[in-house]
Computed example of a mutant assay.
Amino acid sequence: MNSEFIAFFILSVMAIGGAVFMINFTRVIHMALALAFTFLSIAGIYLQLHAEFLAVIQILIYTGAISILMLFGIMLTKNHEELKSSIAPWHAVLSFVGVAAFFGVLMWIIYQTPVISEPSDGEGWTILQLGERVFTEYVIPFELASILLLVALVGAVVLAKKEEK
């Protein structure tokens, strides 16, 4: 057991813990913060895999932009907290059985899929080539995605303004 394994174990437990907290929290703000915590943990795993570019993108786009956009949308819309009805015991058991069955099928598929990888020649995409490709060939889809996010943000503002009246 080396330090790399210990770091991976800690980061993976943090990512899974953040996801579990996100599911179990009742306040939406706490859910968004738990999701940001999960995103940061995943960025740490990317760093451990020597994918520094993906780690920085994970922090910038998901942890920064998406989490802030979610918090902004939550703050703009009025969140009426409703009382949760008590969950029936049979519902919890049925949910557990469904999740266990899904997990079993997923693990069976993973173990049945052959993992064949060919040795890499060391030449692949560099960040410079990726940036040139995104901003030359794929500049229109890139800009359309940013416009879509902007329209979603404006839509949230319009919906929040309509609720005040």
Score class of each variant (00 low, 15 high):
residue 70 M to D: 06
residue 106 L to N: 03
residue 102 F to T: 06
residue 77 T to N: 05
residue 158 V to Y: 13
residue 22 M to P: 02
residue 58 Q to G: 01
residue 28 V to E: 13
residue 131 G to R: 14
residue 88 A to R: 13
residue 38 T to G: 08
residue 62 Y to M: 06
residue 129 Q to Y: 04
residue 140 I to F: 11
residue 25 F to T: 09
residue 96 F to P: 00
residue 109 I to H: 03
residue 21 F to L: 12
residue 85 S to L: 06
residue 133 R to S: 03
residue 57 I to P: 00
residue 113 T to C: 01
residue 129 Q to C: 01
residue 144 L to C: 06
residue 117 S to I: 15
residue 156 A to S: 10
residue 17 G to P: 03
residue 126 T to H: 06
residue 163 E to V: 04
residue 152 A to M: 13
residue 72 F to N: 02
residue 101 A to P: 00
residue 16 I to T: 15
residue 73 G to I: 04
residue 39 F to I: 10
residue 121 D to T: 05
residue 31 M to S: 08
residue 71 L to Q: 10
residue 79 N to Q: 15
residue 26 T to P: 00
residue 10 I to P: 02
residue 159 L to K: 11
residue 150 L to Q: 11
residue 130 L to H: 03
residue 79 N to K: 12
residue 143 E to C: 03
residue 67 S to N: 05
residue 55 A to T: 06
residue 23 I to L: 10
residue 108 W to G: 00
residue 95 S to V: 08
residue 82 E to C: 02
residue 150 L to M: 14
residue 157 V to A: 05
residue 123 E to P: 00
residue 109 I to L: 08
residue 84 K to F: 02
residue 119 P to R: 03
residue 84 K to T: 02
residue 38 T to I: 09
residue 131 G to Q: 12
residue 125 W to D: 04
residue 61 I to A: 14
residue 59 I to N: 01
residue 75 M to N: 13
residue 117 S to Y: 08
residue 103 F to G: 00
residue 141 P to I: 06
residue 71 L to W: 07
residue 50 H to Q: 12
residue 89 P to I: 11
residue 165 K to A: 04
residue 73 G to R: 05
residue 49 L to I: 12
residue 77 T to Q: 10
residue 28 V to M: 14
residue 35 L to D: 08
residue 34 A to Y: 09
residue 95 S to Y: 13
residue 64 G to A: 07
residue 135 F to L: 09
residue 102 F to L: 08
residue 125 W to Q: 01
residue 76 L to M: 14
residue 36 A to C: 13
residue 144 L to F: 03
residue 118 E to T: 11
residue 122 G to H: 03
residue 119 P to K: 08
residue 97 V to T: 09
residue 9 F to I: 07
residue 2 N to P: 06
residue 84 K to N: 03
residue 50 H to F: 14
residue 118 E to R: 05
residue 148 L to N: 10
residue 115 V to F: 05
residue 24 N to C: 06
residue 5 F to I: 05
residue 163 E to N: 07
residue 125 W to A: 01
residue 93 V to C: 02
residue 127 I to M: 07
residue 79 N to R: 11
residue 29 I to T: 11
residue 67 S to C: 13
residue 120 S to N: 11
residue 1 M to W: 09
residue 139 V to P: 00
residue 145 A to F: 15
residue 90 W to Y: 12
residue 9 F to E: 06
residue 160 A to C: 02
residue 94 L to W: 09
residue 78 K to M: 07
residue 98 G to H: 10
residue 73 G to Q: 12
residue 46 Y to W: 11
residue 133 R to L: 05
residue 54 L to K: 02
residue 67 S to I: 13
residue 61 I to T: 09
residue 84 K to E: 14
residue 133 R to I: 08
residue 81 E to Y: 08
residue 141 P to D: 11
residue 19 A to K: 08
residue 17 G to W: 10
residue 19 A to P: 03
residue 51 A to S: 05
residue 53 F to P: 01
residue 64 G to N: 09
residue 43 A to I: 07
residue 75 M to Q: 10
residue 31 M to A: 11
residue 137 E to Y: 11
residue 89 P to D: 13
residue 116 I to D: 10
residue 141 P to Y: 10
residue 86 S to Y: 13
residue 139 V to R: 04
residue 53 F to G: 01
residue 32 A to P: 02
residue 110 I to M: 04
residue 4 E to R: 02
residue 92 A to R: 14
residue 13 V to S: 09
residue 100 A to T: 11
residue 136 T to F: 04
residue 64 G to W: 15
residue 21 F to V: 11
residue 153 L to M: 11
residue 108 W to K: 01
residue 98 G to W: 13
residue 124 G to W: 12
residue 152 A to I: 15
residue 145 A to H: 13
residue 13 V to C: 11
residue 134 V to T: 14
residue 165 K to D: 08
